[in-house]
Each structure stands twice: as C-alpha cells, then as structure tokens.
C-alpha cells in the first residue's frame, strides 16, 4: 500500500521543515487522478504521526478534481477517471489538473 509511504513522506517533510513545531492541523491536496486514495491516507495518518510533531494533528484532505484538454479537438473538461474519453471520441487527453500530491499548509501552535 503506497499510501503508507505517501503518509510517511508527508510526516517526514513536516518534521524536516518544522522540527520544533506542534502541528494542530495539516491540509493536503490529493488530486483525484493522483493514484493515491485519500481514505487510505486518513486510515494510516494517526499511526504514522504518532510521536512526531504531527501527533494529534487534524488531517484535512482536499481532493481536487481532474481537468483535461483533448489533443484532437482542444476541448477542456473535468475528468475524474484516467480512462475518460473526450466527447469527440478521442482518447488522447492532456491532463491539466488532478494529479496533485501536495502539502498545502499546517496550523501550528504559536
């Protein structure tokens, strides 16, 4: 389950950047086309965060929608599945959004 290593990377990154903080809340952006299941990250977050600066922090996940542009007709539209086709029937889409895997912000005790 790569969500465990993803969650581990999140915790490592925050530990590295803010080694002395007490984090109360963390916000992630996990795009719907990123290949990472938000619920699985939620599932392992508390365990991975235990004993770190993120211990007890509230996890917020924004699941941003996917957007694509058709390489055949240039149409732009929302996609939430990698196998989506354009309305014109073309398969080849350029993904514009939805693959994000970002740590957006943390709220830390002052």
């Amino acid at each position: 389950m790569h969500e465990l290593s993803i969650t581990q990377s999140v915790v490592d990154t925050v530990c590295e950047r803010m080694p002395d903080a007490t984090v109360r809340r963390i916000r992630l952006d996990i795009g719907r086309l990123s290949g990472v299941v938000a619920d699985s990250v939620r599932f392992c977050f508390d365990l991975v965060a235990e004993g770190t600066v993120l211990d007890g922090a509230v996890l917020e996940i924004v699941e941003s929608p996917g957007r694509a542009r058709c390489r055949a007709c240039d149409a732009e539209f929302e996609v939430n599945d990698l196998l989506a086709l354009c309305g014109c029937g073309a398969q080849e889409l350029e993904l514009l959004a939805g693959q994000e895997l970002m740590i957006k912000e943390v709220e830390v005790a002052a």
């Binding site: 993803i6 990154t13 950047r17 903080a21 970002m102 740590i103 912000e105 943390v106």
Partner: peptide, 19 residues
C-alpha cells in the same frame, strides 16, 4: 498570524514526493 488564536498557519505548498 491567526488573529485571536494561539496558533498560526504556515503555507508549505510542497510536493509530497519532492524528496
């Protein structure tokens, strides 16, 4: 600084897999 709270928000905007 979050006014009136004893906490502040830090924007990180960092890719999880950056490392």
């Amino acid at each position: 600084a979050d006014d009136g709270h004893d906490s502040r928000t830090v924007t990180l905007e960092q890719a999880v897999l950056a490392r």
